[in-house]
């Protein structure tokens, strides 16, 4: 893992949203690397800043948001310094994205074929016929009958639509594909079929994946490494094996224990009591303090920094847990 080529490197990323009450510190000092061919997961409660990180990478943040600091390097190039045209080609050729809501990713009044071709033709000077042929190939890739190329989105099921978007995301053979909760709106069976498909395509085509979800068990099954965010900050980044042993951060431990079948002896299911602090006026110390079962007085001094533990594992906590602690 260590010596593999790094595709994406996010360093000390800070993103702020301007709201009526003040600035929302949506993402603070977030750092992580994704290696070539790696299946990288990003998990955390709703509102912890996962989508904001994803949108920052694609430079798709809207008016209210601004990147207040940090850097995003893609294959060694600074994404934040791209010109308009560099950004346009970076998008989809280098990094593509499947958005959160499965249902509204596609333009309802244009055929799926035409939308696939738009993606191809925006980046490659091809005759329309050739682009159409490519679009058919892409549909086959995700197990959709190429004859449906003339179908409109509403004529397809939710699962099929999301597979079309996945096919679209692979159209230009990008180095990184970002999935932002690609299956939340779908039922479980469809969800697993799609995930299997993504895994298989990744093996075949060798792209890296940034996979965002709430679904921790699913993540443990699929990912190489998982990053856990809390209140806009990185809590822990760990290889799956380390997480299966329980993880080092009290928040990670709490999340894992919410799914008792996964870690250690069977316990009753329990969430983590308490709620996330306000991100407009965050407290001075560790943001997890209010809910932490292992807190001590020094935790209130300053938010703990992310510490490298070696082996692709890092954690931000003053009192990290060892394997034994349940």
């Amino acid at each position: 893992m260590e010596n593999r080529e790094i595709v994406l490197s996010v360093k000390d990323l800070n993103v702020r949203y301007t709201a009526d009450r003040g600035e929302v510190q949506a993402v603070t000092n977030v750092s992580f690397d994704i290696h070539k061919g790696e299946f990288f997961g990003l998990a955390g409660e709703s509102g912890c800043g996962k989508s904001t990180v994803a949108f920052s990478i694609m430079q798709l943040l809207k008016g209210a948001a601004r990147i207040a600091g940090g850097s995003i390097q893609f294959n060694g190039r600074n994404v934040l310094a791209f010109t308009k045209e560099e950004l346009r080609t970076f998008r989809w050729e280098k990094s593509s994205m499947v958005l959160q809501s499965a249902m509204n990713n596609l333009n309802p009044v244009v055929t799926i074929g035409s939308q696939l071709m738009d993606a191809i033709l925006a980046h490659e000077a091809l005759p329309r016929r050739a682009a159409q042929e490519r679009a058919r190939e892409l549909l086959k890739l995700v197990n959709i009958d190429p004859a449906r190329i003339k179908a409109y989105p509403h004529e397809l099921s939710g699962g099929m639509r999301q597979r079309v978007v996945i096919a679209m995301a692979l159209a230009l053979r990008p180095d990184l594909v970002i999935f932002d909760e690609p299956t939340t709106a779908l039922d479980v069976v469809v969800q697993y079929n799609i995930i299997r498909r993504i895994q298989e395509l990744k093996r075949r085509m060798g792209f890296s994946v940034l996979f965002i979800t709430h679904d921790l068990p699913l993540m443990l099954e699929m990912c190489d490494r998982i990053a856990i965010m809390y209140a806009g900050r990185m809590a822990e980044i760990a290889p799956v094996e380390r997480l299966l042993e329980g993880g080092a951060h009290p928040y990670t431990r709490g999340l894992l224990q919410a799914f008792p079948s996964l870690v250690g002896p069977r316990k009753e299911l329990r969430g983590i009591p308490g709620s996330v602090p306000d991100l407009i006026t965050p407290p001075a110390g560790c943001l997890f303090y209010e809910r932490c079962a292992h807190r001590q007085e020094d935790c209130l001094l300053a938010p703990p920094a992310l510490e490298d533990l070696g082996g692709g594992h890092s954690c931000a906590c003053r009192h990290m847990l060892s394997k034994e602690v349940g």
Binding site: L60, L99, N104, N107, V109, V110, D118, A122
Partner: peptide
């Protein structure tokens, strides 16, 4: 504010195309 516009941007489509084929076609309905 629809996702298909964000996706069209993410696809690296040119501005004119996003405006006409993706935004106006829907907004004019």
């Amino acid at each position: 504010s629809e996702d298909y516009i964000v996706l069209a941007q993410a696809k690296g489509l040119r501005r004119g195309k996003i405006l006409t084929k993706y935004a106006l076609r829907n907004a004019l309905l």
